[in-house]
Simulated scan of single mutants.
Amino acid sequence: MNFLNIKEQIKSNGYTYESFGAKVGMSKASIARIASGNQTPSFETLEKLANALDIEVIDLFKSKKGYEEPNGYVEYLGEVHKITSMEDLKNLIDKQ
């Protein structure tokens, strides 16, 4: 399960899954699977989503519910990485 706040970001920007999917070139179903945590997005997908929302990738990991540290999973170079701190995400981004 992914704990990204993509659902909140999409909603707060006035999109539905369908309209946001159209904006980023993904299906409504793919957006819904990522937002619900049923699909682990690649880092490239996270970049695409963040760019479309005009936010940084790290903002997709920040919880709106008061948690300080990010919490989620991302696929990068064929491996799934658990992100539980800002340092985890920074280390992953630095690998690029």
Rank of each mutant, 00 (worst) to 15 (best):
R33M: 12
E87L: 10
N2S: 07
I83W: 05
E69W: 14
N38P: 00
L49F: 12
G72N: 12
M86Q: 15
I31E: 03
T84K: 14
I93K: 10
I58V: 15
A35Q: 06
E68D: 15
T45L: 10
L77W: 15
E75P: 00
E8N: 05
V24Q: 03
G37P: 09
K65W: 11
I10Q: 02
L4M: 00
K90P: 09
K7S: 07
E56V: 08
G72V: 07
A29Q: 09
M26N: 11
V80E: 12
F20G: 04
K62Q: 13
A32V: 01
K7P: 04
S19T: 15
G14M: 07
I58A: 13
S30Y: 15
P70S: 10
I6W: 01
R33Y: 14
Y67V: 11
H81R: 06
A50E: 04
K90G: 04
K64C: 09
G25I: 02
N13H: 13
E69C: 11
F43N: 00
S36P: 03
I6L: 13
G21K: 02
I93T: 11
I93Q: 13
K95C: 08
E69G: 10
F20L: 05
E8V: 04
M1V: 13
E75W: 02
N2F: 09
D94E: 14
L92S: 10
K62R: 12
E18L: 05
I55A: 02
A52L: 02
S63D: 14
K62Y: 12
V57Y: 03
S42F: 00
Q96S: 12
L77V: 09
Y73Q: 01
F61P: 05
S12R: 07
G72W: 13
K90W: 13
T16K: 05
K65C: 03
Q96K: 14
G37T: 06
L49I: 15
Y67M: 09
P70Q: 10
V74Y: 02
D54C: 00
K90L: 06
A35M: 07
P41W: 06
T45Q: 14
Y73M: 01
K48R: 11
E56H: 12
L60K: 07
M1D: 09
T40G: 04
A50I: 09
S30F: 14
Q96D: 12
K48F: 02
S19G: 01
E8T: 06
N2H: 08
N5V: 07
Y15C: 06
S27H: 09
T45S: 08
V74F: 03
K23V: 02
Q96N: 12
E18Q: 07
I34K: 03
E44Q: 10
I34G: 00
Y73W: 04
N71D: 11
I6Q: 01
A50P: 00
R33F: 11
S19W: 03
I6A: 02
A52G: 09
D88N: 14
Y76F: 15
V24F: 05
